[in-house]
Amino acid sequence: MRLKVRALVLSAAVFTMAISAATGQSTSPKVAERQQDMKAMAGAAKIIDAMFKDTSPYDSRAFKTAAETIRVHSGHRLSALFEAPVLAEASKASASIEADRPTFDKLAAELGVYASALAVAADRNPAVLAPEMRMKSGDVTMGGPLAKRKAAAPDPVKMPAEHAFHMMLQICTSCHAKFRVKGE
């Protein structure tokens, strides 16, 4: 499975370079690395999603590898890739990252927390995608990662893995909505 994830990352990098060459855009190494990392995380999320949707058989090692891929590419690493100057040719990053650095860094860190919770769930469930990994009615919380909360957020390790996965995807969506150039 690690080979699949590595192959996905490599093919994303080749695709990015080919598009840049074909369109005459020069992608800086930092922007290319950002794009590679984003493609790796998207590919990893698709692997986990397929297991939750039962379109792919559950494989705890593949599930954990995918979760670890997201964890490794989140947090400080993600924040560092978007340090000033954020704006660059061939990048979809918005200057709002620089204007609201604390929120961006918080979302990057939370992404890693949810990914870690998914890795723990894979360790706890080596044979099957157990029922306790699934969301149940009433597991859905109102609002996303940018919503104001009255109470402390629940511990992602204690929630069903599917819920942690959906919360992680909400972080991705919130970050793109807030920090990506509109219309892209």
Score class of each variant (00 low, 15 high):
Ala108Val: 13
Ile70Met: 13
Thr27Glu: 01
Asp139Arg: 08
Ala21Cys: 08
Lys46Gly: 09
Thr103Ala: 11
Leu87Glu: 12
Leu8Cys: 03
Val157His: 09
Met133Pro: 00
Ile70Val: 15
Thr55Gln: 11
Ala18Cys: 02
Val113Ala: 08
Ala127Val: 15
Arg180Asn: 01
Leu3Arg: 00
Val140Pro: 11
Ala62Gly: 08
Met17His: 05
Ala177Gly: 12
Ala18Gly: 12
Asn125Tyr: 03
Val157Glu: 09
Met17Ser: 13
Ala152Gly: 10
Val140Met: 07
Lys64Trp: 01
Cys175His: 04
Gln170Thr: 05
Gln170Trp: 01
Glu110Asp: 15
Val5Gln: 12
Ser20Trp: 02
Glu184Phe: 08
Thr173Asp: 09
Lys4Glu: 04
Ile70Gln: 06
Thr173Arg: 09
Met1Val: 10
Glu68Phe: 07
Phe63Glu: 00
Thr173Ser: 11
Lys106Pro: 09
Thr173His: 09
Ala108Ile: 08
Thr141Pro: 06
Met133Cys: 04
Ser11Arg: 11
Ala115Met: 01
Val14Leu: 12
Ala7Asn: 13
Val72Cys: 06
Arg134Lys: 15
Pro160Asn: 11
Arg101Ile: 08
Leu107Lys: 12
Thr65Trp: 02
Ile19Asn: 05
Phe165Tyr: 14
Ala84Arg: 14
Ala12Asp: 13
Ser96Gly: 08
Pro57Ile: 13
Arg61His: 05
Ala42Gly: 15
Arg134Phe: 03
Lys136Ser: 13
Met168Trp: 03
Ala50Met: 02
Ala152Lys: 14
Met51Gln: 04
Thr103Cys: 14
Ala7Lys: 15
Met133Asp: 03
Gln170His: 07
Ala152Tyr: 11
